[in-house]
């Protein structure tokens, strides 16, 4: 029920945006995200964008795991 999927905002008109979900395009209500801009990623639940998704934060998480993987490899040596 609380499933939500990320997509890329392609255009915005009033309360609705065209969002690209990796090839599938859908109209999404963006009332809950004031100031949203084209090119931002959003998380969409039941046809409503509920939050922005920040790829740079995802990269930070992955960098932390890379660091852990490197440390683990060193320990093994």
């Amino acid at each position: 029920m609380c499933l939500a999927v990320p997509g890329l905002v392609e255009s915005i008109e009033d309360d609705y945006a065209d969002v690209d979900f990796g090839g599938v395009r859908k109209k999404v209500c963006v009332t809950l995200l004031p100031g949203l801009e084209v090119g931002e990623y959003v998380i969409v639940h039941t046809g409503y964008a509920i939050e922005r998704m920040k790829p740079e934060e995802a990269k930070k998480t992955l960098a932390l795991w890379d660091e852990m993987a490197e440390m683990a490899a060193k320990m093994e040596k």
């Binding site: 029920m1 609380c2 639940h45 509920i50």
Partner: peptide, 9 residues
């Protein structure tokens, strides 16, 4: 039906 995620819609 739903939780806080769905209620705003």
């Amino acid at each position: 039906v739903g939780f806080e995620t769905t209620a705003p819609a």
